[in-house]
Design a protein around this nucleic acid. Structure first.
Ligand SMILES: NC(=O)c1ccc[n+]([C@@H]2O[C@H](COP(=O)([O-])OP(=O)(O)OC[C@H]3O[C@@H](n4cnc5c(N)ncnc54)[C@H](O)[C@@H]3O)[C@@H](O)[C@H]2O)c1
Ligand SMILES: NC(=O)c1ccc[n+]([C@@H]2O[C@H](COP(=O)([O-])OP(=O)(O)OC[C@H]3O[C@@H](n4cnc5c(N)ncnc54)[C@H](O)[C@@H]3O)[C@@H](O)[C@H]2O)c1
Lengths: 251, 251
DNA sequence: GTGAGTTTGTGCAAACGTTCACAAACGCCT
DNA sequence: AGGCGTTTGTGAACGTTTGCACAAACTCAC
């Protein structure tokens, strides 16, 4: 990337779109953003790559390389301006507009999601709830009325919804995905434990808790096998807590 | 890895521990396992790498390389024996014993997790629920009574719990993690949007829905910027549905 | 203005992960 | 028994990601 005068960054002229931002970087930007918001609330105006990296749980060199892809927003000898970096990352992630999200499947998990405040504080607005069960349709949750899934096309268009969450049983998820795509949704976050098939141009991400647990189980298995013979290693030794801006944390 | 006679695989002699299984492979094994269980229920006795890869949503070469790390369990010209492969992957993941899991924070999300049947069908047993709120302690959910978090050490030891889920607010998560570690838990699945600091030897995985949505938001942003000028591309063209064993799916 | 101290941005090499492509191995049919 | 179509297991090429290490750029004190 060519040198930039301070202030103006690469990519701003084309609407903040970074076509070849590495995927690994994209996946970490939200974590930086969360850490930055926390720092801003705590009163920090600037933060070093070391401090932000610690707060986000990553290596500082990695963080600097990630941020360098967005342009040159740091000041050598000082660090990054927290407010500026928040604005820049939100811009890159497309969070300048609050995005409307639909939730399909208002069961056990769906109720928790519908009542979750963490979406609205981080750039999203749950704009509609859908279910296929007549007993559920009409129920009011958190100020929203559960709608019949048949009304998807109409509501998706009216509310300009482009992102949807699927929280139905796995056997219904592909059908729901097809309906979502037909209605114009182009990004899906799937909680059902199954693989979804979608057209090109539609993004799917998956959250499968059992998979997470099984990965942990593997490491448990490995750990317990290792502690049979060698020394139990440093049990009780803590890693260094993240320190912000190089200062030690109070308390 | 050296050539193996059929049947006996590498690693069986040392308790099924594969110290240097690539992390990316470990993360995919649970997905293969889920797909295999689905195939087994559907009546398949064998499956080709192509068929299993489609069912798991990955490239077949990647799948073969992943499975080759476990030893030689396929038959050339035929494919993999479904039941055998299930047993082998469960063995590697340490799922031969049903693992006891603790859940801390029985709020909005915690209730959904406590009532989720997907854990027990995939190798885990929710063995205890904890909360700090006196109003919540004593509540009965799905046959389990919510216990005071102060009783963690006692219950973790009694139930042989090594894995815990944290579903408390973010500001309490680090404290809870410290208590869990002190009680002997060595794997944590964290739902709170924050970075946890734990000693060496303790594994932490994180599920942050807002991060998932923000990654989707980035791609939405990118997509909408691209559709301003160039042709809208093949809208409506579906990817090929996963076909099992090379046969077309009925329906 | 100068020097000392700090911190960014990045070139580079190593580690890691993915995909191709094909020989070897197998079942099956004749 | 032998040939044929199929499928695995893996070497090798390629792409991506990580982490080190350091010059360049900046602040601040005097
Ligand atoms: N409950 C959890 O904590 C949890 C955790 C992880 C994953 N999941 C997964 O999330 C999904 C939902 O879990 P749950 O526990 O909420 O199940 P649930 O049965 O309580 O709820 C499913 C809801 O989906 C609705 N539904 C079914 N078919 C539909 C269709 N075609 N269109 C629209 N709505 C439809 C049902 O009416 C019901 O309200 C499942 O796939 C589950 O595996 C749940
Ligand atoms: N609700 C959702 O769908 C959802 C989705 C994603 C992430 N999350 C995250 O999951 C966490 C829980 O969310 P929620 O909506 O269930 O919140 P909640 O406030 O409804 O529940 C939190 C529970 O944790 C308990 N708690 C607080 N401090 C505790 C402590 N020190 N020890 C033990 N228990 C303690 C509280 O008593 C309460 O019961 C939050 O961090 C939230 O950001 C929730």
């Amino acid at each position: 990337m060519s040198q930039q005068r301070n202030g103006q960054a690469a990519g701003v002229s084309d609407g903040g779109v970074f076509p070849d931002l590495p995927e690994a970087t994209v996946a970490r930007l939200p974590e930086y953003l969360r850490a930055l918001h926390h720092l801003a609330e705590t009163g920090f105006e600037t933060v070093s790559s070391e401090g932000l990296a610690a707060a986000a749980g990553v290596n500082s060199a990695k963080l600097r390389k990630d941020l360098s892809h967005l342009g040159s927003y740091g000041t050598r000898g000082v660090g990054y301006d927290v407010a500026l970096l928040i604005a820049q990352i939100e811009h890159v992630l497309g969070l300048t507009q609050r995005r409307a999200v639909a939730l399909v499947g208002v069961g056990n998990l769906g109720h928790a999601l519908a009542g979750y405040g963490g979406f609205s504080t981080r750039g999203f607005r749950i704009a509609a709830l859908f279910d296929a069960d007549p007993d559920r349709i009409g129920e009011r949750i958190n100020g929203l009325v559960v709608k019949d899934i048949a009304r998807l096309p109409e509501v998706v268009a009216a509310e300009a919804i482009s992102i949807a969450l699927i929280a139905t049983p796995a056997h219904a998820a592909q059908l729901v995905a097809d309906q979502l795509v037909a209605a114009g949704v182009t990004s899906i976050l799937n909680f059902a434990p199954c693989v979804l098939s979608v057209p090109d141009g539609v993004d799917v991400r998956k959250v499968d808790l059992a998979i997470e647990l099984q990965i942990l189980s593997f490491h448990e298995h490995r750990k317990s096998a290792l502690t049979t013979l060698p020394a139990p290693a440093g049990n009780g030794r803590m890693k260094i807590r993240p320190t912000l801006n190089g200062e030690a944390l109070a308390t």
